[in-house]
């Protein structure tokens, strides 16, 4: 047997998203950004970005306007809680249609 064959089976993982699956399905409430209130969106200038800074799951972008990756957003609501402008509302997932999801 060759050296490569001998070491063929070990637990070595490759980086990729979604190890936990589409964790967006964990969500019961969805953060929705009101672009009228969102400071960076409203002013067109990069500013607070607390939503991006505090997101434990790296699903908010530091862009104008900020966007949220609902495939993986677990709906914790930290972004809504920490938004200085109160621009993010947590909306019941049940109120969205299948298409919206």
């Amino acid at each position: 047997m060759s050296k490569e064959e001998f070491c063929s089976m070990i637990s070595v993982s490759e980086p990729g998203p979604g190890d936990g699956g589409n964790t967006g399905s964990w969500r019961v409430v969805r953060p929705v950004i009101d672009l009228e209130k969102c400071i960076p969106a409203k002013t067109g200038k990069p500013s607070c970005f607390n939503c991006w800074l505090y997101c434990p799951d790296a699903v908010v972008t530091k862009t104008l306007p900020p966007t949220i990756d609902y495939t993986y957003c677990k709906g914790c609501g930290i972004c809504a809680e920490e938004c200085p402008a109160g621009a993010i509302t947590m909306v019941d997932e049940a109120s969205f249609t299948k298409e919206e999801k």
């Binding site: 964790t23 434990p56 993986y72 914790c76």
Partner: peptide, 16 residues
Amino acid sequence: IVNPGNRACSGCGLGI
């Protein structure tokens, strides 16, 4: 450097 979709609990402080 951390990918989304990992298995941490919702709102995990460690995530931050």
